[in-house]
Computed example of a mutant assay.
Amino acid sequence: MAVRASELAAMVMIGDGVLGTVMPERHVSRWILGPQRWRPMRVFAERPALTRALGAVEAAVGMWWAARLPATSR
């Protein structure tokens, strides 16, 4: 069960990273419209190059994490 949860987390990281890399302003704007505690995300909407770079790193870390997970027998 822990491996499945870890793989799910890695997949979410990969997807979020790809979205942040491909469409940074659009992706971050969804977070700005959320609850008050998410409003500081505005700094990323104002800096798309930073958002792209962090998104690429996030996707790479997610892929690295997924690759390190043990294979299951089923």
Rank of each mutant, 00 (worst) to 15 (best):
A67V: 01
A9W: 03
G62M: 08
V61L: 15
M41N: 09
E46W: 09
A60C: 15
R42C: 00
L8S: 00
A60L: 15
E46M: 15
R68P: 01
T51E: 02
L19T: 02
M1W: 02
W64G: 08
M11R: 10
L54K: 04
H27G: 01
L8P: 00
A53Q: 11
R52I: 09
T72M: 12
V12T: 01
E25P: 01
R26S: 02
L19C: 07
I14C: 03
V43E: 12
V22H: 00
P70T: 08
A10P: 05
L54N: 07
V57N: 04
A45F: 10
V18K: 08
L19M: 08
R47Q: 14
G17S: 02
M63Y: 03
P40S: 04
A45E: 15
R4M: 04
S73N: 06
L33N: 13
S73K: 11
W38N: 13
W38Y: 12
P70C: 03
E46T: 09
P24G: 06
E7A: 13
G20L: 04
A53V: 14
A53H: 07
W64F: 10
L69S: 02
M11S: 09
L50Q: 11
V28H: 00
G17Y: 03
L69Q: 05
A9N: 01
R47P: 01
L54D: 04
